[in-house]
Design a protein around this nucleic acid. Sequence first.
DNA 1: ATTAAACCTAGAGTTAACTCTAATATAAAA
DNA 2: TTTTATATTAGAGTTAACTCTAGGTTTAAT
Lengths: 148, 148
Amino acid sequence: MGYSIGQIAHKTGLSTHTLRYYEKEGLLPFIRKNSAGLRVFSDNDLGWLGMIECLKETGMPLKGIKQYIDWFIEGDSTLSQRLDMFQKQKKRIEEQIALLQKHMERINYKISLYEEAVKKGSLDAAFAIPELNEKRKQFLTKTDKKIQ
Amino acid sequence: MGYSIGQIAHKTGLSTHTLRYYEKEGLLPFIRKNSAGLRVFSDNDLGWLGMIECLKETGMPLKGIKQYIDWFIEGDSTLSQRLDMFQKQKKRIEEQIALLQKHMERINYKISLYEEAVKKGSLDAAFAIPELNEKRKQFLTKTDKKIQ
DNA sequence: ATTAAACCTAGAGTTAACTCTAATATAAAA
DNA sequence: TTTTATATTAGAGTTAACTCTAGGTTTAAT
């Protein structure tokens, strides 16, 4: 089955501009063109777009995605590089989730604080509540980022 | 206690350039300067940097963070806007975690696939394994992004 | 057969978030 | 007290990832 660039834009939520840009950047090297020079996308291309979306939304830059595609094209001699890439990406996802969960605690504290503040009509009044003021301290003690 | 911009750069992992840039963008309007014009950061400023980090790393653009700071400066008349902002940010974090977990499944599949491929020395050989080929289908069926 | 919609390329423009430079001033160390 | 490190500003430059434009071609609908 063949799809036009517009159909693929509709299916993926990407713009036709972005799809052409991805192709230009080497992220979609499998797309065929018909006799008139129009792109014809296959289900396989849609599959690649799914993989690109996955890697992009887990924080990989387009350059990194291109490297993966280049390795794929190179064939079985790059299997271990690709495995390594996916293992590193898994680790990155785990770190991202952990970071988001850490930040969620602070946001939850802020929500409690502001719920109370809205109720009382004053932020200072919310701080006066022992429980909230106690939890606040948790986020004030920041340790150094860089190791000396 | 007062800190120099260099000390804060060290503590936060941000560059002095970035710290000045943040101040210029209105993200750090509380920083004092000494008689010679040098910035003197307080523990409170460090606290703000912690909040900025939290919002930034959960996907809020600097513009959005500035809005929050502007609301803070405006005072108690903006409490509900700030509560709303944090509630929306919480929702965004939940969505981000859910998305990362979804993508993690695909990455886990790829890791299984490439572990097998590395073992066999061939990607096609890995696809020949029924279990992996079965799981593959899960990621081929993509539904449309846009609602018609 | 005509018109409107969708497509093509090359290349310019945009945005966010830095990142760096130059020329100069202040502070800390030897 | 001289050197070295750190700081200042204004403004230019960079990078990633789009996003758009212009001028022309192809396809689909009437």
